[in-house]
Design a protein around this nucleic acid. Sequence first.
DNA 1: GGGTTTTCCCCACTTTTATCCACAACTTTC
DNA 2: GAAAGTTGTGGATAAAAGTGGGGAAAACCC
Lengths: 143, 143
Amino acid sequence: MFIGEFNYKIDAKKRLAVPAKFRDDLDGKVVVTRGLDGCLFLYQLDEWRKLAEKISNLPLSQADARSFARVMLAGAMEVEIDSSGRILIPDYLKEYADLKKEITIAGVYNRMEIWDKDKWEDYKEKTESEVGDIAEELKELGV
Amino acid sequence: MFIGEFNYKIDAKKRLAVPAKFRDDLDGKVVVTRGLDGCLFLYQLDEWRKLAEKISNLPLSQADARSFARVMLAGAMEVEIDSSGRILIPDYLKEYADLKKEITIAGVYNRMEIWDKDKWEDYKEKTESEVGDIAEELKELGV
DNA sequence: GGGTTTTCCCCACTTTTATCCACAACTTTC
DNA sequence: GAAAGTTGTGGATAAAAGTGGGGAAAACCC
């Protein structure tokens, strides 16, 4: 499972290294998708397929199901890990997550998240100051 | 299966490239039809047959089922992929989806969608803010 | 039939992507 | 602590993809 925080750079050819620790678990391919809070999600292939299967079976007749499927499925991309352990981030996802050069990859158990480093720092700072409150809420969840 | 977002141009001869990634799965032919929300749908041949089967079995007594069948079936057209990986978009479909020069093709798992790029951008923007709570929807899918 | 338009097949150019290699910095091993 | 391997990063070159256009063939139209 994916845990930890890693810093990399996207180069001029949109290549981004995947943490070496995780490469063996990925079988040469991953799926990048639009994530929440302005980052990208990185899924293991079979993990993603399960999700996609469910989404694609939503009724074609419902407008909100269609738009949901479009955002999730068209927003995703299957990418190969090259011989140096890097993946290609497509333009539209790079733009979506506002990725510049400095990137942070965070392991969040069953997926990874790709953040623009600055955005990640900001988010972390903000969140850490709220950790007290979050703890309160977690208590209510019985954690 | 088809996922991702791709940008192409329709040229003066109404030719439009099919994403190179998908060409191998298409066996030289695809079916284009009127889609929903102002785009065109692009199906694999056998996938299309399954759908057409389903649609043609809709109750003839319901007016909206009849009109849905007309839109999808009457507008459908089998087109060949040429040696450069392009298809021809017939005039009436080009008009229907209001296609200008810049086109976006979106992979939505078992079909592709052809959008005028501007329209797609608008749709996406609108949807991203509406769907906003992707997390909620995912929860309902049990993810 | 003669002329015009549309369609189809092929080629060509440019840009993007893929593949391969290089190398410095850091780790691990003995 | 030297040697051998990893890892992150950049670049050169080859291959593929995207796009446009010419001209033959087919269809269309007075």
